[in-house]
Simulated assay, not measured.
Amino acid sequence: MPAGDCYPLEFPVVALVASAGGLEALTAVLAPLPADLAAAVLVAQHVSPDHPSRLAAILDQRTALPVREARNNDLLVPGTVLIAPPARHLLVTSQARLGLIESGTLPPARPSVDLLLATLAVTCGPRALAVVLTGKGTDGQAGIRAIAHCGGTVYAQDVTTSAHYGMPGAAVDTTLVEQVLTLPDIPPAILAHIDNAPR
């Protein structure tokens, strides 16, 4: 761990966040990533809290990385993709594990991108990468500010390749996005970030 770095996670963590149009975007990002990826991947896509989600099963068939829904107290492991389940907010805890809390019946968006990114920021610091993909609304702005405050990095999908530019546009509006990328350019940018992340 670098001198002065007090963050408990000692390897990179990539958070892919999305809403409307997210399945296609997540597929495009995850499909090129190698099975030996030297980072853990967390996914939060807005889904109905009232129905089971097949997102993990679908993505598991589209990438070399193992993909499954996150469980409470899961340990973050490089080369694994964990997805926020319906009706649960996904948190990263100070023990570098995951926590799930009931999302309840009222907003914020479910699962909350802000909650995921804020907790990732304070546990991963400069090894955190948030990638804001297509989606409606503005969920993620507060979490992006937390990521930047703790030394992490934020990328956003560009307007031309986003099915809905609400979330990426809101991310860009924070002025804290390091790169605005077309969808095909996001996987190589993720790999470059992982290669250069502090260990």
Rank of each mutant, 00 (worst) to 15 (best):
T182G: 15
R127P: 02
A192V: 03
V77Y: 02
Q141W: 01
G99E: 15
H193N: 03
G137K: 04
D114V: 13
S94H: 10
R54T: 12
I190K: 05
V154G: 02
L116V: 11
N73D: 15
A148R: 09
P168N: 10
G166K: 10
S112L: 03
V92G: 00
S112D: 02
A163P: 01
H164T: 10
V92Q: 00
A192L: 13
A142R: 05
V132F: 04
T182A: 15
D139G: 07
T175P: 01
L183P: 09
L91I: 12
L183T: 12
P168I: 07
H149T: 03
P108L: 07
V122I: 05
L55K: 12
A163K: 02
G135Q: 01
D139A: 07
L133V: 04
I58C: 05
A87T: 02
G143L: 13
P86T: 13
P187T: 12
C124V: 15
Q157M: 09
T153P: 00
L82Y: 05
E102K: 02
P184W: 01
A56I: 03
T123L: 06
L65E: 13
L129G: 08
T182N: 13
Y165L: 02
G151R: 07
P66I: 03
G135K: 02
I186V: 14
T93W: 04
P168D: 10
E178M: 00
V154M: 00
A70G: 11
A146S: 14
L176H: 06
I186C: 05
V67C: 07
L98I: 13
L65S: 14
C124S: 15
L75M: 08
P168E: 05
R54K: 08
G143P: 09
N72Q: 09
A96F: 04
L82A: 07
R62N: 11
S112R: 00
V113M: 11
G125M: 08
R68A: 13
V81D: 04
T63F: 06
A96N: 07
T63L: 11
R54W: 13
A189G: 04
D139W: 03
L76Q: 03
G99A: 15
V81L: 02
D185K: 11
G166Q: 09
T123G: 14
K136N: 06
L75I: 06
V180N: 01
